[in-house]
Measured scan of single mutants.
Amino acid sequence: MKHYEVEILDAKTREKLCFLDKVEPHATIAEIKNLFTKTHPQWYPARQSLRLDPKGKSLKDEDVLQKLPVGTTATLYFRDLGAQISWVTVFLTEYAGPLFIYLLFYFRVPFIYGHKYDFTSSRHTVVHLACICHSFHYIKRLLETLFVHRFSHGTMPLRNIFKNCTYYWGFAAWMAYYINHPLYTPPTYGAQQVKLALAIFVICQLGNFSIHMALRDLRPAGSKTRKIPYPTKNPFTWLFLLVSCPNYTYEVGSWIGFAIMTQCLPVALFSLVGFTQMTIWAKGKHRSYLKEFRDYPPLRMPIIPFLL
């Protein structure tokens, strides 16, 4: 059985960083990364991007050496992705923050609204209902991160945790300040508006959870398998008939419901920014589905049925 020789060059300087002799033909890129780490321990596998061309796409960890368009002496180019952190850690951090930050404003801890309001309670029912909904949303997200989601990528750049936390924590503080303010004004149409908004919120939260469970069942634990998601017997998953990412559709719907319930401008802005970002993600995933699966359902749109 022939063996391969693998040289790894710096993608920027073309400097030879490592030479691997007698590499098995069936070795994966993940195994080559581990061998590279032995000579350069500062670059652990998650930091490494190996590619066939200095400006090309990163090879997948599961790619097999003998199936790549290389000879028995293969040249790979290395790029440092920077310090990495696990997706689970990032999600837990960015979701735990809003949960606790919101509660600080809800309980009106000292130095927020003035001494005479310390630890007082709002007289408006919608304020307490909003706290329950907000807390439920982020507790749900935390539990899904721990027990439901299966991540195709193990890590992301460390800098992302600061960007994500600034976004989630900042908006949580902004909306919580106004919703729990002693001078907060309840919704214009009173109980009817709150009940309608609560119904929207609850339905969308159930829908979002149902989609996450359906997506989880598509991917076996520990794998990166991708399949076309289809509706199940659960009615909340029937939205798969019309959109590629109904989890985002339901998520946006939840925040629209919360915005109607609280009639709070920061919540509306958070919903708008979230919708914009999720639309970008949904379009990317939709394109990926179309590219990977020739039999992908043609009627589906990325996030909004028939429109977007």
Rank of each mutant, 00 (worst) to 15 (best):
F36R: 01
N208R: 01
F270E: 14
F91G: 03
Y177Q: 08
H115F: 14
K140Q: 13
Y250C: 06
P297V: 08
F258C: 11
A191D: 06
T225Y: 14
F275C: 14
K291S: 11
A197T: 11
I8T: 07
P182F: 02
L158W: 14
S86C: 12
K16C: 13
I179N: 02
H286P: 08
T262D: 09
A46Q: 13
G257D: 11
I304K: 05
V202Y: 06
Q48G: 00
D63Q: 00
I29N: 04
F19L: 10
C204F: 06
R294G: 09
P302M: 06
Y289F: 10
T276D: 14
H137N: 13
G170A: 05
P187N: 05
T237S: 07
R47C: 10
T28A: 10
F105T: 13
P187I: 02
Q48D: 13
S288R: 09
R141L: 02
V194W: 15
W43Q: 11
Q42R: 12
G190A: 03
A173M: 14
K224F: 03
A191R: 05
E15N: 14
G170F: 11
E94M: 08
L241M: 06
T125L: 00
D61C: 09
K55C: 14
T73K: 03
L68A: 12
P54A: 10
K283S: 03
G284C: 11
L146P: 09
Q277L: 08
H212Q: 04
E292S: 09
L242S: 04
E5M: 13
G114Y: 15
G274V: 05
F236S: 07
K2C: 07
S210Y: 02
R47S: 01
L206I: 06
I8R: 04
L99S: 07
I32F: 04
L183H: 09
T185C: 10
A30M: 02
P302Q: 00
K55G: 05
L242A: 02
K12W: 13
G97A: 08
W238R: 08
H3V: 11
D61S: 03
F171A: 15
L299Q: 13
R108P: 09
F105R: 01
P229I: 07
Y138N: 00
L76P: 06
L142R: 01
R287P: 05
S152Y: 02
S122W: 08
Y44I: 01
P302V: 08
N247S: 10
G253R: 02
Y113T: 05
Q84H: 07
K22T: 08
E144G: 02
D10V: 04
V273S: 09
E31L: 06
I260M: 06
F258L: 12
A11R: 07
L35Q: 14
A214P: 03
T89R: 11
R300D: 00
N208C: 15
A46Y: 13
V127T: 03
F201D: 03
S49K: 03
S244P: 03
L158S: 08
A191N: 11
V88D: 01
N234T: 11
R216M: 10
Y177F: 07
F201L: 10
T145L: 10
L103E: 07
S254P: 02
V194T: 01
I85N: 13
M261W: 04
F240C: 08
V273N: 02
G71P: 03
I132P: 13
L20P: 04
H134T: 14
A172V: 07
V126M: 10
G114E: 05
L308H: 08
H115P: 06
I101Y: 05
Y95V: 02
L218I: 12
W174S: 12
